[in-house]
Simulated assay, not measured.
Amino acid sequence: MAQTDSSADWTGKAERIAAIAAEQAAVHDADDSFVAEGFAALDEAGFFSALVPVELGGGGARVGEICDALRIIGGACGSTALAASMHSHVVAVAAWRWKNQGAPTDGLLKRVAAERLKLVSSGGSDWLTSAGTLEKVEGGFRLTARKAFTSGSPVGDLLATSAVYDDPDEGPVVLHFPAPLKGEGVSIASTWQVMGMRGTGSDDVVFDGLFIPDGAILGRRPQGEWHMLFHIISMIAFALIYSAYLGVAEGARDRSLAMVRKRPDNPQLAQLAGEMENCLLAARLAHRRMVELAETGRPGPETTSEAMQCRTLVADAVIAAVTKAMEVAGGASFYRKIGLERAFREIQAARFHPLQEKPQLDLAGRVALGWGIDG
């Protein structure tokens, strides 16, 4: 029987992957190209099956171990870490559902391990309302949709996505399923020309009548309402996603300190460095709680609210930490070759994953007040 990956093993693997990803990070940032070298190194290390349970042929790694790996990689190349996190959270959620709910996700997980599949997510652009339509046909559905923010799509095999089916009895319902990213009825639109995280390959995926068999449907829920599936996603996914941003902030911190350590004693510089350290510690503490929830939490509104609070706290803190890293380094941070300018652009993406701050505050307030969360 395969053995569970040890944390020390994944730390070492992540450091080797980070070194490879770092070599071309600036090139991919400059020309909007996908981080192919980093993904090849991840694949060689067995990263894409790491979170698959041992019983299903995977590595059996804990979420926390992979969070640490993503954090290390993020310090070298944010795009590699962020794109990899999107695969990881789909696998982690599928594994949790199989272990704790007996959900029929074992077939997908076995394929990930056996076929070395790379999964892509559209959850950030779909969220509760979803997007795209499903038309019922014999044996399944026809999918028509355009899915944005599909990180890893240049090399992805399956898109974990959803779309709306107008059920004649129930009305609009959202169906969840994996959709192939190669073949007739699927195309990739090269739309990913953005401020930061330019190497993630987060292009639009266009489906034009793609057939989705009935057996591929893995979940069904009312449109626009919180459902247990999304409480599970909220509990698990964002610890992995925000590991990438924590890594970017830690990398910026290390670069800035390396630049100024030999400067003469300066109280103002020391205070700026201290402010940066406080921001980074706040991010680490909030992220640690996200990992705890992902590994031991019970999904539901209270857990979702806490996980989303942590998401906001981490986002605010890592953005502040990278801003302070630029102040510590001074005017030199404005030069692209230093890498801090890229980190500053990359870290801005931490603002935009669900739930963004205002919806998160609304959710936290509703949970605290005992009000309904679907209002």
Rank of each mutant, 00 (worst) to 15 (best):
D166N: 15
D265A: 15
G12Q: 05
I212P: 01
T80M: 04
Q360V: 10
M195G: 11
G38H: 04
A282R: 09
K99G: 09
F39A: 02
L159S: 05
D214R: 10
G124H: 15
T191A: 05
F352Y: 14
I241E: 03
A216G: 08
S151F: 02
H176F: 08
E170G: 04
L56N: 00
L269F: 07
A349N: 03
F149R: 02
R289I: 10
K147A: 06
G102S: 09
A349H: 05
T11C: 13
V63W: 00
P154L: 04
F141G: 02
P264M: 14
A103V: 10
K136F: 12
A92G: 08
G199Y: 04
R298C: 10
Y245S: 07
T80W: 01
R263N: 11
G75Q: 08
A189S: 14
P53C: 12
G375K: 13
L246R: 06
I338H: 11
A239Q: 05
S85D: 02
M326P: 00
L272I: 14
Q24G: 13
D68Y: 03
L369S: 15
Y245C: 03
F211G: 01
G297C: 10
G124L: 12
L42D: 00
H176P: 00
W371T: 05
F207A: 02
A19E: 15
L363F: 09
M290G: 01
L340C: 07
E250P: 01
L56Q: 02
W127D: 09
V35L: 06
L158V: 08
R284D: 09
V54E: 06
D43V: 03
S130L: 09
K147Q: 06
A50C: 08
S130W: 09
M195W: 07
S151V: 03
G215F: 10
T80K: 01
F352L: 14
F344T: 00
L42N: 03
L246A: 04
V35F: 02
I66R: 01
A22E: 11
H176G: 08
E295D: 11
V248Q: 05
V205S: 02
A237S: 15
E15C: 04
S153Y: 02
Q360P: 08
I73A: 06
E55N: 09
G124W: 05
L363D: 07
Y335F: 14
I72T: 14
I241W: 02
E327G: 03
S49T: 07
L313A: 14
L281P: 00
A364N: 12
L293T: 01
Y242V: 05
K324N: 12
R263T: 12
V206Q: 03
I17R: 01
A321N: 07
S33Q: 11
G331W: 09
T150F: 05
I241F: 03
A325D: 06
G59S: 08
T191E: 11
D32T: 12
A76V: 05
A325E: 07
E55V: 09
A258K: 15
L355H: 01
S151H: 00
D5R: 05
Y165F: 15
G140F: 06
V260I: 14
Q223C: 13
P154K: 04
V164L: 10
D265P: 11
G75R: 01
L257Q: 13
K13Q: 12
W192P: 00
I232P: 00
Q268V: 15
Q360E: 14
I188A: 02
S6D: 07
M259I: 11
V27I: 12
G46L: 03
Y245E: 04
C279H: 11
A94I: 06
W371G: 08
Q268A: 15
L210S: 04
D203G: 01
Q309P: 00
